[in-house]
């Protein structure tokens, strides 16, 4: 089947995309989640066109203003427009999520398939490595890394990648182990197919759906980690806007104005709800164990 053929198959009336969309339309929470996800994607991509302010422009005489027509979500302690900083903070959150999840998933898939399909000793070795990483509390691990290399966006991404690899790798390993003794894999092996062909042509397509669901559900976790690290001063450096640093600034001045805290909290709640509702709806649709029809 050609690549074009796969696309055609996905988009035909009984293909995956169309059937998924048909089912999603019948799930209001799933639809709400999708709307939130698309909305967040839109405002972060088009942030510069959705505000007339510079996120780092200081105006100390306009500090801690409440919401108004000029400043939709008020201003922070330096008079910076909170709405603008939220939009740009979203860019940071999305960048971290996309980059960190993509890299963690790619490494997780490779290591997970190796563990699940490779020799026993390699499985044990990798599992020990995953468990070792998972046993470190993420914040403690982050503090240690930041102490060594200093806080920055790349540091945050690196920390999240390292912390997330075992999550993906374990899922992939379990799925691969379940698949390796299935008839069609055994048949492929008997026909002399290479390990590479088995893993990439037969195993990977079968574990893609749960991984996609996992990645979707992982976005709020990663966004929360980035915000948490930035809140603690272990994430992006000032003046870069991040939802966590907006919350941190707001926390310091909460008695003067609650708006930065409220404004900084809303996108985190929306991301959590949006991706969770959407991800769970996808799981209902795509996970064969939960599929109620077809």
């Amino acid at each position: 089947m050609t690549r074009f053929g796969i696309l055609e198959a996905l988009l035909r009336p009984d293909g995956l995309v169309v059937t998924t969309w048909r089912k999603l339309r019948r799930d209001p929470l799933g639809l709400l989640g999708l709307a939130i996800v698309l909305g967040i994607g839109f405002v972060t991509v088009f942030a510069p066109w959705l505000t007339s302010y510079d996120p780092n422009e200081v105006d100390v005489y306009a500090r801690l203003l409440p919401p108004s027509a000029d400043h939709l979500l008020g201003t922070d302690q330096l008079g910076r427009d909170t709405y603008t900083r939220l939009l740009y903070g979203g860019r940071v959150a999305m960048k971290v999520s996309i980059v960190a999840i993509s890299i963690a998933m790619a490494i997780g898939i490779a290591l997970g398939m190796l563990a699940g399909y490779g020799p026993r000793w390699l499985d044990r070795l990798l599992i020990t490595g995953f468990d070792t990483i998972r046993s470190f509390p993420t914040i403690m691990f982050a503090m240690a890394i930041v102490a060594l290399v200093g806080p920055s966006l790349n540091t945050v991404i690196g920390i999240i990648i390292i912390a997330s690899i075992p999550v993906y790798a374990r899922v992939v390993r379990t799925q691969t182990m379940a698949l390796r003794e299935r008839d069609f894999i055994v048949a492929e092996r008997a026909m002399g197919a290479s390990t590479r062909r088995i893993l990439f042509r037969h195993v990977m397509p079968n574990i893609a759906a749960p991984l996609f669901i996992l990645a979707s559900m992982d976005v709020p976790v990663v966004v929360g980690m980035e915000a948490g690290l930035s809140f603690l001063g272990l994430g992006v450096s000032p003046p870069t806007a991040s939802w966590g640093s907006i919350l941190n600034d707001g926390y310091s001045y909460i008695r003067n104005s609650p708006w930065p805290i409220i404004a900084g909290g809303i996108p985190l709640i929306l991301v959590t709800l949006g991706f969770t509702f959407f991800g769970e709806s996808l799981r209902d649709i795509l996970d064969p164990k939960l599929r109620r029809e077809g």
Partner: peptide
């Protein structure tokens, strides 16, 4: 120092010096 007062002051200094082409990295 990584305290609210100093961080606020530092960010104003950062913004202030940015106008003359000096990029200040804050090191709390």
């Amino acid at each position: 120092p990584a305290d609210a007062l100093e961080l606020t002051a530092g960010q104003v200094v950062q913004w202030s010096l940015g106008k003359i082409g000096i990029e200040v990295e804050l090191d709390p």
